[in-house]
Design a protein around this nucleic acid. Structure first.
Length: 882
DNA sequence: ATACATACC
DNA sequence: TACTGGTATGTAT
């Protein structure tokens, strides 16, 4: 097949057509000179970085297709037969249980943003126009579509297609207002309607139709709006030319599937139940499904002066396809009847089906599938080539099946923010942008009372290559500082990974996911973590952030950015303040002076970056090669690799591979080099390496690390390696100027290194900076290792993590009790402060393209208050060591 | 769990 | 000059 072959030159038209070519399968784009349009688009885009990237992506798709075709070639007749039997069985079941009892309606506002702008500015009505910017259009009006101008096209290209194009900037507030008006109408037909965006919604009209049967005529009578403030004149004009289909109109005439009604005419013109103008300016709608939807659309138009299209079908998938059928300002119904569904499906191009985009379309095309009939015929093959979810979906589609009950989506799963800009390569700018994003995101999260466990950084370089880097933390994040403390490490890794080249970015984004459910949130809310946060916020409330930084400088060890955000850091800071036995060493002081202590809040501080350079080398305890990359993750990865080869020590290949790794890394050592042998250089001259395997029971198996350099401990945590739900903890002792490790003098050689993923990673790196103050969780394993409590830093003679947890709990409780005492002394009745994470309503975050917003404003509000429970610090910590 | 891709509006 | 932003989900590792 053609697509199974590699595409020839990148300049080949095929790839271009695929990625860049005009997408004309939308309404308003029929009968265009596609060739001419494509030529213009091509000229405008060819050679650009964007285009180059598109070609690259296209090649990836071709590769996928190639692989698929190879797989296909290996399939035997027998396999296909078997597959067919299986698939047929499922198909029969699906067909059997087909539910045709619901009347699902999909409402889609026509060229929504553009229509709003045209409504509000008569000058735009008779000119091709689009909403958006020179960089990106959200939507275009139908006049512009004639030129090939459409949504998701950059404005500057649109201008080439249509020099007269008017581009109007987005005006979301307005669209939201209009959308609200529309939704008010929808709610009357289905209070549980499902908004998909500002301009789209699903309704289940089944109930309404039952009621409608007993609905007296006067309740189905609606009046034409007679005056429309600013546009009244135009409306009148338009009412006179009722035959013109294309005009924006307040007339019911445009219900395409019934003959135009003259306003003065009384007679029902179509079926008996059809809408009727019984008196001047009044329209009576019948009881049928179609009439109900016409009525609904009529009311939308009367209310907003905007038209909507609708699809009516027994399920959501079909309804969605139908709403496109007679767009604009039309509706289409598939009767609730199996044959009607199958007839409709028969020639339906798969691309029309929601969920089948250009890639899937192309892949299926390679298999000779373009219509739903093809899809059904190839069902056995598809079951062999695609994942279960995929081919099930294909089968559903080919049977005309879809969801029959619309339900509001559950809890949101992620929240993110991202920004595009031009070529940014300075690291300090990147960090401060990252921080800004975190700040924005934190604000959004606060509105919904969200706390998440995974932070993802997204970057797109100037070549349009996208990378995402994620990190999951043990506790949750919600504040700007918390998110940033994770995000900045991810960014740091990216920057360092690209070094010595700068990262040249065009976009950066931050996402938080893995939200705590209500239960977990409550749990956390009463936990000490939040308790401390609240306390922190309280005490800093009137302080500016630089003040906070400054105060940290005096109380915290030079742990680097974000150090104050770690729970244990906080704990230790408190301890340090209270405990006169802890001194800051001279070394630490000098570090204090040199290292940026900024939490990163002071964004423009160029010093902020210096600690990334400060310490560049780590020595791998397995291969003894110096690793230049100060990025701990990379370092860990390296060790993982070394270890996994070690595990196959007898394997010649494995050995070779280790050598390869060593060789590959050797040159690096010479080039990047560490900063002129400062005391910051991390020397892990290994005295012994222990690998211990710990069974991990659950997936919150990340162990926490404590790297806070507040004592003279000398151990460094190195790595955990995952394999089959087990973790190997590599233990490494650090040699410190002949000092004997203090905390475990009886077993100085064995120290458990526990990695902390995520959040706490920064502290690992901080440790790099503070050479003389290594600190670990050390442990006695079997008989000779013990775990060190991260709070009191004392070795607990146990390897049992739950035992250690108990101890940590106690340790923590001590602190809490102290704090409570203080608290009571200073504020007598401050319990309410615990409440600060309160609200959990869903904000609506509608934005952007012609459509957005998964949330309706109509969502049920939840009680916004949470009782400040008596503190129960215990559980939060448990998690750390599970 | 992470990374990357696809899809939708 | 210039090719989005937010969310969910699928695919692959």
């Amino acid at each position: 097949m053609e697509s199974s072959k590699k595409h020839d030159a990148p300049s080949g038209d095929e790839a271009f057509q695929f990625r860049m070519g005009l997408n004309d399968n939308k309404a308003g784009m029929e009968g265009l000179d596609k060739e001419k349009i494509n030529k213009i688009i091509m000229e405008a885009t060819k050679g650009s970085r964007f285009y180059e990237n598109e070609l690259k992506k296209d090649e990836q798709v071709n590769l996928r297709i190639e692989k698929m075709m190879q797989q296909k070639a290996q399939i035997t007749e027998q396999q296909l037969k078997n597959s067919e039997l299986q698939v047929n069985k499922l198909a029969a079941e699906l067909d059997q249980s087909r539910n045709l009892s619901r009347i699902i309606v999909h409402i889609d506002m026509d060229a929504f943003y553009a229509a709003v702008e045209m409504r509000d500015n008569p000058e735009l009505r008779n000119t091709p126009m689009a909403v958006g910017s020179m960089s990106m259009l959200s939507t275009s009006n139908y006049l512009a579509r004639r030129f090939g101008v459409r949504a998701a096209m950059p404005g500057f290209i649109a201008k080439k297609l249509c020099p007269g194009l008017a581009i109007v900037p987005l005006n979301f507030d307005k669209y939201r207002d209009v959308s609200k008006q529309v939704r008010e109408v929808l709610a009357e037909y289905d209070p549980n309607f499902l908004p998909m965006s500002l301009d789209e919604a699903y309704l289940d009209l089944t109930e309404h139709l039952k009621e409608r049967n007993n609905c007296p005529e006067d309740k189905r009578t609606y009046f034409l709006r007679t005056d429309t403030a600013e546009s009244s004149k135009v409306s009148e004009d338009e009412l006179k030319v009722t035959e013109v289909e294309d005009t924006l109109s307040t007339s019911p005439v445009l219900f395409e599937d019934s003959p135009p009604l003259s306003l003065e005419r009384d007679a029902p013109t179509c079926e008996p139940q059809g809408e009727t103008v019984s008196m001047k300016n009044a329209v009576i709608f019948g009881k049928s499904v179609e009439d109900a939807v016409k009525e609904l659309r009529f009311r939308i138009e009367q209310k907003t002066t905007l038209t909507a299209s609708a699809g009516i079908a027994p399920n959501m998938m079909l309804a969605k396809v139908c709403s496109d059928k007679n767009k604009p300002n039309g509706q289409y119904r598939i009767p609730s009847d199996r044959q009607a569904v199958m007839d409709f499906i028969k020639d339906l191009p798969i691309r029309r089906v929601p969920g089948i985009g250009k890639v899937t379309e192309k892949m299926l095309k390679a298999l000779g599938i373009t219509t739903c009939t093809d899809l059904y015929q190839q069902r056995a093959l598809l079951a062999l080539l695609f994942s279960e979810t995929s081919w099930h979906n294909f089968l559903d589609i080919s049977l005309g099946l879809g969801s029959t009950h619309i339900e509001r989506d559950g809890e949101r799963k992620s929240m993110s923010t991202e920004r595009t800009f031009n070529d940014m390569w300075k690291a300090d700018e990147q960090y401060s942008l990252c921080q800004e994003l975190c700040s924005d995101l934190a604000q959004d999260m606060l509105k919904e009372g969200l706390k998440g466990k995974t932070v993802t950084l997204k970057v797109k370089n100037v070549k349009f290559e996208v990378r995402t880097r994620a990190s999951t933390v043990l506790s949750s994040v919600s504040t700007q500082e918390e998110i940033f403390s994770v995000a900045k490490e991810l960014l740091r890794a990216e920057i360092e990974g690209a070094s010595p080249q700068p990262l040249r970015l065009r976009l950066m984004g931050v996402r938080v996911s893995g939200f705590l459910n209500e239960e977990e949130k409550k749990h956390h809310q009463i936990s000490i973590i939040n308790f401390l946060k609240v306390r922190n916020a309280e005490s800093n409330f009137s302080h500016s952030q630089p003040d906070e930084t400054a105060s940290r400088q005096s109380t915290q060890p030079p742990a680097g950015k974000g150090c104050g955000e770690s729970f244990f850091n906080k704990k230790r800071a408190v301890r340090q303040q209270n405990d006169s036995k802890h001194f800051v060493t001279g070394e630490q002081k000098s570090q204090c002076a040199r290292l940026p202590i900024s939490t990163g809040i002071a964004t423009n501080d160029p010093l902020m970056l210096s600690d990334t350079i400060e310490c560049q080398s780590l020595t791998c305890p397995v291969c003894f090669q110096k690793q230049e990359n100060s990025n701990l993750e990379a370092f860990n990865r390296h060790i993982d690799q070394c270890l996994s080869w070690d595990a196959y020590n007898d394997d010649a290949d494995g050995k070779e591979a280790v050598e390869t790794i060593r060789e590959a890394q050797a040159p690096l050592n010479n080039t990047v080099g560490n900063k002129e042998g400062t005391a910051d250089e991390v020397h892990i001259s290994s005295m012994e390496t222990n690998v211990l395997t710990v069974n991990q029971q659950n997936d919150s198996d990340k162990t926490m690390v404590d790297t806070q350099p507040n004592s003279t401990d000398n151990f460094v945590v190195i790595n955990t390696q995952q394999s089959n739900s087990k973790k190997k903890y590599v233990v490494q002792e650090k040699e410190v100027d002949g000092n004997v490790p203090t905390s475990n003098t009886h077993h100085p050689q064995n120290h458990l290194a526990i990695e902390v993923p995520s959040n706490e990673n920064e502290h690992l790196q901080e440790t790099e900076d503070v050479t003389e103050t290594w600190q670990t969780c050390s442990a006695t394993l079997s008989e000779d290792m013990g775990l060190v409590c991260p709070v009191c830093n004392l070795c607990q003679k146990t390897t049992d993590l739950s035992e250690l947890n108990k101890h940590v709990d106690i340790c923590l409780n001590k602190g809490i009790i102290q704090e409570l005492k203080k608290e009571r002394m200073f504020h007598n009745n401050n319990g309410e402060h615990l409440n600060s994470t309160g609200t959990s309503g869903r904000g609506q975050q509608d934005l952007n393209t012609e459509t957005r917003a998964k949330r309706s404003g109509s969502s049920a509000q939840q009680p916004a208050s949470k009782k400040p429970k008596p503190n129960n610090p215990k559980h939060t910590i448990d998690k750390f060591f599970k």
